[in-house]
């Protein structure tokens, strides 16, 4: 025979657990959902390139090399092409000129590294340009914090 009080106690415990679970985890989920809707990034998650992967390519010249464009304050990554901050029209025009010379199938990597993506004024204009110019194989280097934390500190190759 079940004791009614015991069953009540059990359901009560479950209820408390569920309520606790929801109050603690829901705000975080809602926040994540909100922030991803807020931004409407012009790139897909598949277009984000892991820094370790680019470093591997740069360290092994036998691998097919991508065109790496810096669209931020300075071309830190070894061998990358310095376009300058893409938020400035002159620099974006320069990027267009450089891209005009390439095949639509060219492997292209874009990076800035000034700040986290949500604050970066440079990556969006550059990625939108690539998208509009109908390039097929471009990536955005995934530097979630900045070029120091995500590239220089791990010891990946830099320009001197």
């Amino acid at each position: 025979m079940y004791d009614v009080n015991e069953i009540n106690d059990l359901t009560m415990k479950t209820k408390i657990a569920i309520i606790l679970f929801l109050t603690v985890s829901l705000p975080g989920m809602a926040f994540n959902l909100f922030s991803s809707q807020e931004q409407k990034d012009p790139w897909t998650p598949q277009q984000l390139l892991n820094p370790a992967e680019l470093a591997k390519m740069l360290n092994n010249t036998k691998l097919p090399q991508s065109y790496v464009f810096s669209v931020g304050p300075q071309a830190v990554i070894k061998g990358s092409i310095d376009i300058g901050p893409a938020r400035m029209k002159g620099n974006l025009d320069n990027l267009r000129l450089q891209l005009d010379k390439l095949s639509k199938n060219a492997q292209i990597v874009i990076y800035c590294g000034c700040c986290p993506f949500d604050r970066c004024p440079n990556v969006r204009p550059a990625i939108e340009l690539l998208k509009n110019m109908q390039f097929r194989n471009y990536k955005l280097l995934n530097l979630p914090r900045n070029i120091k934390a995500d590239w220089i500190d791990p010891g990946y190759p830099v320009n001197d």
Binding site: K13, S25, M29, P144
Partner: peptide
């Protein structure tokens, strides 16, 4: 009960890990 707490703790941890160190 403990399990639910563990699950929520894991969700919180991974949910916030991207928001900055």
């Amino acid at each position: 009960m403990t399990r639910l707490f563990l699950i929520s703790a894991v969700i919180i941890f991974f949910g916030n890990i991207s928001t900055g160190f």
